[in-house]
């Protein structure tokens, strides 16, 4: 395990911590928790991160609580590009925050979809 391998998988080494989840844990809820953390941690200096992360949090919260709309997935993809591109923000916090979301959308797309079509979290 090194920095490049984790980077290619769509995340960051960070403090080297791993969180292992079983198949009973909702990936949407997991990412929601991460985005909530990063929105809270944002120092507020630059616009895309300060305003964008709470917005992303709100969209994810809606999806997780069964109020998601089909266009929310487009909004998330848009936010990943806008907030998550290096250079768009002043520091690397915002791109780092968006990486788990973009890999979750890639690997657990069906779970996001299910939340929206079913109007509730299929895991509980």
């Amino acid at each position: 395990m090194d920095y490049n391998v984790i980077g290619k998988a769509g995340s960051r080494m960070g403090t080297g911590t791993m969180i292992i989840l079983d198949d009973q844990t909702c990936p949407v809820g997991m990412v929601l928790n991460l985005i909530r953390f990063f929105a809270h941690e944002s120092c507020g200096f630059c616009t895309p991160c300060r305003e964008g992360l709470p917005w992303t949090h709100q969209v994810l919260l809606d999806i997780e609580q069964g109020r998601g709309q089909p266009e929310d997935l487009e909004t998330l993809a848009y936010q990943i590009k806008y907030i998550g591109t290096m250079g768009n923000t002043h520091c690397a916090l915002a791109p780092g925050a968006m990486e788990p979301l973009q890999s979750a959308l890639k690997y657990f797309y069906y779970d996001f979809k299910q939340h929206i079509t079913g109007g509730r979290c299929p895991y509980h």
């Binding site: 990063f38 929105a39 809270h40 944002s42 507020g44 305003e51 992360l53 709470p54 949090h57």
Partner: peptide
């Protein structure tokens, strides 16, 4: 003016 940050 910039405290508390957005998330807080």
């Amino acid at each position: 003016v910039f405290w508390p940050p957005a998330g807080r």
